[in-house]
């Protein structure tokens, strides 16, 4: 599904390397968790994979479903099935949530050569998935993320994911800022999407999330590189010991 090989990324307008030879392989059906200290490059990795401007790839490659990911426009990546749940979802005043979701879904379908959905078909899907995630009709009537609380924004990201049904979901700290109940609702939403055809990369600081979304692999990202990989027990170990070992090693 996703193959990142020896990826080096620097900031486009600054002489500063953020990713330092990062390698990560994710197969369909797998759930990978990425943990690591603040500033280690987790969000940068997710942005680079999603196609955000401002970064320059200076070495290595990233392939998605066998194709060169870094060559594609952000919307092409999305249509091909990549989805990033943002650590800080963006508020867009004046753009209605429902219209945004509908245009997004139909743009993707169009790009894939599928039939676009009619408004009633689309509404049915959104209503059903919003209900499952405890998202009110009132929230759907507002502009994209505008006036949403931190937790509501995270929930809205998962709703978008549930509607767009991507094949590779990258969740960047979707658990931060969620209360215990919301965490469970969001985790259920994510688990509902787990399937043999779908892969997930879950970036988190807390082992707690991984009790709900049980990963197949856990990676430690430090100073722009994966420095250790293991099973779900690695997360428990990190929770107990912290990252001192890795930051020292890398330094």
């Amino acid at each position: 599904m996703l193959e990142v090989k020896d990826l080096y990324v620097k900031l486009a307008d600054e002489d500063r390397t953020i990713l330092n030879g990062l390698t990560l392989k994710v197969k369909a059906g797998e759930v990978h968790a990425i943990m690591g200290p603040n500033g280690s490059g987790k969000s940068t990795l997710s942005y680079v994979l999603a196609g955000r401007e401002g970064y320059e790839v200076t070495g290595g490659e990233a392939r998605f479903k066998g194709e060169d990911l870094l060559d594609m426009a952000p919307d092409q990546r999305a249509a091909k099935g990549l989805f990033l749940a943002f650590q800080y979802p963006i508020e867009i005043p004046g753009v209605a949530t429902m219209q945004f979701l509908k245009v997004a879904l139909n743009s993707q379908r169009k790009a894939r050569g599928e039939k676009e959905l009619t408004t009633p078909e689309f509404m049915r899907i959104v209503k059903e998935r919003a209900a499952r995630l405890g998202i009110s009709q009132d929230m759907l009537k507002r502009a994209v993320n505008v006036g949403f609380s931190g937790g509501e924004k995270k929930r809205a990201e998962i709703l978008q994911m549930a509607v767009l049904e991507p094949s590779l979901c990258i969740l960047d700290e979707t658990d931060s800022g969620l209360d215990i109940d919301a965490l469970r609702v969001v985790a259920d939403g994510v688990n509902a999407l787990r399937s043999p055809e779908r892969a997930m990369v879950v970036i988190t600081h807390y082992q707690r999330l991984l009790d709900y979304i049980v990963p197949d692999f856990v990676h430690v990202l430090s100073q722009g590189r994966i420095v250790k990989s293991g099973g779900k027990e690695l997360a428990l170990e990190l929770e107990a010991k912290g990252y001192a070992e890795f930051t020292r090693e890398a330094a």
């Binding site: 999603a50 196609g51 955000r52 401007e53 426009a73 952000p74 919307d75 990546r77 999305a78 249509a79 989805f83 990033l84 943002f86 979802p89 963006i90 867009i92 753009v95 945004f100 245009v103 997004a104 879904l105 743009s107 993707q108 790009a111 994209v144 978008q160 767009l164």
Partner: peptide
Amino acid sequence: HNHLFYLRSRGIPE
């Protein structure tokens, strides 16, 4: 540009 990227990351062409 953040608005634009957010929309495009959901599959909406530029």
